[in-house]
Design a protein around this nucleic acid. Structure first.
Lengths: 157, 157
DNA sequence: GTGCGTGCAAAATCTTTGCATACGC
DNA sequence: GCGTATGCAAAGATTTTGCACGCAC
């Protein structure tokens, strides 16, 4: 919970970048730190990142944010999500929860995360059955949360 | 496998539409038939649908295709997919494979489908644990197909 | 100092929408 | 005939890109 985790990611980031002759810039550091500060359960769009940074008095152009998000995903530091709705979202790729999954309420959009070894195994088995090598798997569950279940009952007849 | 499946879907479509005072138009029928003719394993974007229909001498405007795709999804006749890359894709919602999953090669984009009871069960368990009611679940597995695995070995060191 | 990264604005995509006309019911 | 659906084109939303300058290395 101290700043050590920030320093750690900075190092990871720097190492990943320098391997390709790329640079650790303030903008890249700031974007990654934002994801760390909001935690690994939050899903931010490019616009979200932009707004967060503006509010923190860190002016980073939207173009750079798009470029940085793609970069961080390619380095494996972020995961890209596509939980319907408009636009892609990103979250910190935490080593604590390597393959976690999402429950999305189709009524209100509420999102919960969970892990499951059996899902991981099922994905790996399916991949190996046809000679694929698993990299990562994500289960997206569309569901109704408790309060939207009640509303739904009121609506249907 | 005969044309009876077409007629059946037409009826389903007509019934679903008429409940809401909506109409069975040639365009809607043609779009649904396209998905049936390509089979339930194919994933088409709005543009794909547009091109297919033009090649079949069926001129349907792109705007109508977007409107129709959203409509067919809301009627439960199509599923909307978001397998990274740009843009959404759609596939026929087959009753034969209610909750099927996708393996996507991150190298070449090749996509395979599979089913798994254990995934379904894991999703349902996770949903019930927090009081959600499962509607559908999709496991997206990012992986490397055999030929991309070879290329990958050549690249890395 | 070299050359990658940034900011800006323009462009390219992808998707939605307003409005007049067409047609399913 | 009534009112929904379509086609067209324009608008919106999201993401990418060209170019000159700045800064990490």
């Amino acid at each position: 919970m101290s700043s050590s985790s920030f320093a750690g990611s900075d190092r990871t980031l720097a190492l990943g970048l320098h391997q390709d002759g790329r640079r650790l810039t303030p903008q890249r550091r700031i974007v990654l730190q934002l994801f760390e500060s909001v935690g690994s359960g939050k899903h931010l769009s490019a616009e979200d990142v932009h707004h967060h940074l503006l509010q923190a008095n860190s002016k980073v152009s939207l173009a750079t944010i798009y470029r940085t998000l793609r970069l961080l995903v390619s380095l494996g530091l972020l995961h890209e999500l596509e939980l319907s709705e408009g636009g892609h979202r990103f979250e910190l790729a935490s080593h604590d929860q390597p393959d976690h999954h999402h429950l999305v309420c189709i009524g209100c959009g509420r999102t919960e995360e969970f892990e499951s070894d059996s899902v991981l195994e099922a994905g790996r088995n399916a991949a190996e059955n046809i000679g694929f090598k698993l990299i990562e798997s994500t289960l997206n569950v569309r569901a109704l949360c408790p309060s939207c279940q009640k509303q739904d009952m009121n609506i249907s007849s």
